[in-house]
Design a protein around this nucleic acid. Structure first.
Lengths: 336, 336
DNA sequence: CTGAAAGCGCTAACAT
DNA sequence: ATGTTAGCGCTTTCAG
């Protein structure tokens, strides 16, 4: 590998000057900079991140800790994070717990703390007190994306209001018999979001004086398949059917939609379905939903962290991210 | 930060011994090792990856270069890669081109080559000759996952055969009027797979003496929405409809399914639909498809690379990954 | 089995 | 504007 030394020799300057020139620092004459640049180019020189990281204390990499990569929300956030990071010349290191929390300790110690990252973005999970302390000692700025977590600032929509908007949309269409398809965090990894969504559903119903029937509330595990089964089961056994279903995520709403189709229950004439997310499939499936844009959330969070790494003053309370009701064909007036 | 020096002092041994003890190398008495371990534990010592990377030349990180994170196949592969890496104590660095190939040069030089990774897994895209050379100089083992690429070994299914299996399944059901929903790589990032799938469709049809009608072949861009529109358009304008549709991916098959539903075309009575992938939604949507398991492919590729990093002899031709036809409700006998 | 010492390749004062 | 000089924290010969 060609090192900074080689470039220095080739240009006839010191390594310090090469370093300065390459990083665009002030205090290098234009002539020298040009010669350094071309020599570096010529030699195919690429600085070693390990060496510069060791010397400068900055790794130019950011970590993202998440429960799993594959879920729509997570990969979308990742996409947004990556976009900003790439633009800023930072690398993205992914720490996935792969659905299980078991190896979490190892992830944290063997990876995150190894001075490999300058900042950490945590997706929808709580850090233990000890993990927090470790990060504070490392002085790595941290932010949570997606689910509010006590004591840590977070970037995300206001789930409470988003749910209320969804449910009130149903109510405004005349629905009173409203069921709920809820999720939960696998292994308690991101339990906050499903909980808040359920609470808000109950609150909104209560505030409108509408009863909630427990047989209309089923568990869809944030998944299409689970939701489809649960909803099928519910719709085909219950004495009286709900006229609308609020689903805590679009994927579960897809399940509800599919269940309805298979049971020959017309949507929205007999059953309205609303979700949350605006998943890529929501539009083609005609699903009414509350849109959130995870990619933007990820980008926002990444920018926030990036800003702090560049010395901007820490933002203690990032602004709430926007959500919007998107009306499509899956909701309609309650049957009379 | 507590350094190896601190641990050495606390234990009363040299840093060299601490290093050996912590890494489990031979030549350290059990007593010493135990004392070192407990001191390290006590002090909360975590080795710096930059320092050890610089000194040893191994970063304990692997890179994954992909066109975008969010597409199902990519994130699923990533999940598999991460699983194996995590188990081996390696970190995962993600280089996403974010759909556009523009910043590719920068990604490569500013990131990949910066001695930040020990090996590179490339997803579905070709490396330029120069990129290859760079990696060879770095001596980083490389492998491509998902689409065969000339001159580089790759891990993936045999797309040609997979497509043939799908199409022959339709033919065996008596279909002769078969259409195709094809994809393509965005910006030529992963053009190989869609091309092979299309070719194989044509070949299979030809080999059975079946004509291919160009008006039945539409472009779905590997997406639900595009596919739905294209299929809707096609089915509602064509003089005679096909009785079956082979879709180059499940997501496009979902689009076809949805299009059919909206047009009140019964599946599979009037139209059979088959995809490729076995996407998470395929089962609940009742889609017949050819299953591939990207997570396993990613894990396999990661293992392959990991093995070489540990000195196992390079595998020039990784075995073809398996695919299986999964029959569900979306395919049935051709209408008579 | 353990220690001393020489770097790995770069950055960051401090000089000039 | 540029060079000198120390390290950054670890690994790795080479001795003992």
């Amino acid at each position: 590998m060609t090192s900074i030394e080689d470039v220095a020799v080739a240009t006839g300057v010191s390594t310090a000057t090469v370093s300065r020139a390459l990083r665009g620092l002030a205090g290098v004459s234009e002539g020298t900079r040009a010669r350094v640049l071309s020599a570096a180019q010529e030699l195919g020189y690429v600085p070693s991140s390990a060496a510069s990281g060791l010397a400068s204390g900055r790794t130019m990499a950011m970590g993202v800790l998440l429960p799993s990569i594959e879920r729509w929300y997570f990969s979308a956030v990742l996409e947004g994070v990556d976009r900003q990071l790439r633009a800023a010349g930072y690398d993205l290191i992914v720490f996935s717990l792969g659905g299980r929390g078991a190896n979490r300790e190892r992830v944290f110690h063997r990876s995150i703390l190894r001075k490999r990252i300058d900042a950490l973005l945590v997706m929808c999970m709580e850090l233990t007190e000890e993990e927090h302390r470790s990060l504070r000692e490392l002085e790595s700025p941290t932010v949570v994306v997606g689910g509010s977590v006590q004591g840590v600032r977070h970037v995300g929509i206001d789930d409470r209001v988003a749910v209320r908007d969804a449910v009130e949309h149903l109510i405004s269409l005349g629905h009173t018999k409203i069921g709920h398809v809820r999720g939960s965090g696998s292994d308690g990894l991101y339990f906050e979001v499903p909980r808040i969504r359920e609470e808000s559903f109950l609150e909104t119903m209560a505030s409108r004086g509408l009863p909630v029937r427990s047989e209309w509330c089923v568990f869809g595990d944030f998944r299409f398949n689970e939701s489809k089964h649960a909803v099928t089961q519910m719709l085909s056994t219950v004495a009286e059917r709900p006229t609308a279903l609020f689903c805590s995520s679009d994927e579960m709403a897809f399940g509800a939609l599919t269940a309805a189709t298979e049971l020959r229950i017309r949507v929205p004439e007999e059953l309205s379905v609303i979700g949350i997310d605006d998943h890529e499939f929501a539009e083609p499936m005609g699903l009414t939903t509350v849109r959130q844009v995870p990619e933007e959330q990820g980008a926002f969070a990444a920018d926030l962290l990036l800003g702090e790494l560049e010395g901007r003053t820490p933002l203690q309370c990032p602004p709430t991210q926007p959500h919007t009701l998107v009306e499509r064909a899956s909701t309609g007036p309650a049957p009379s």
